[in-house]
Amino acid sequence: MSEETPRQRIDREESATPGVVPMHHPIMRELDEPTDGFEPTPVWLMLIYFALIGWGGWYLAMNSGDFQVGVLTDEMMRPGAGLAARPEPAPVDPMVLGRRIYNNCVTCHQADGEGVEGAFPPLAQSEWMLGDEETLVRILLHGAQGPMVVLGNTYDSEMPAWGQLKDEQIAAVLTYTRASFGNNAPAVAPETVARIREAAGRRTQPWTAAELRAAAAP
């Protein structure tokens, strides 16, 4: 006869003592409190753990920038790299750069360049977008305010200034918007942006439609 398991013992005891008062059952039916076995720890497990701890030490040493508080980015994390390891950004195609910067514009002008009816003017097929590039640069550098007529509708909202962008960035976003949403106007050169920025001096006021027309007049 094979050895009885605890479970079987409880079952046998339960069926053998049908007369026991029910209050005993809640404790009779459960097994004794659990105990610990003492099987040895497998060696292969310990080897895995030592390997893992070794990796942890190496990773910590390689990615902690000598525990300096000023070391933040991946490039600077290597030991001894210090602040000199900061990377130089690579040049990007103006259309790609422009599309990225346009992410800032979609809140108003929308991803399809159609704007919001009654609130924010469209860029698609807009006579402003397809027209004078210097006017567009002025709007981007210093913003615009007051009523503006776009495709026959009047808009009265505030266009923020983007003068904090670099010349290449302003040129790129204009190049992108003038060649997207069905628009087909030539690219804008960073030099144009630089020239207009220079000419505007320390202007901080946003442009009005009338001022823009006056500035564009030859």
């Binding site: 800032n104 809140t107 609130a119 924010f120 909202s157 505030e158 266009m159 923020p160 904090q164």
Partner: peptide
């Protein structure tokens, strides 16, 4: 605030 300074935009939004 730098990306979208417009009061109208923020309040409508």
């Amino acid at each position: 605030g730098a990306r979208q300074p417009s009061r109208d935009w923020h309040l409508l939004h």
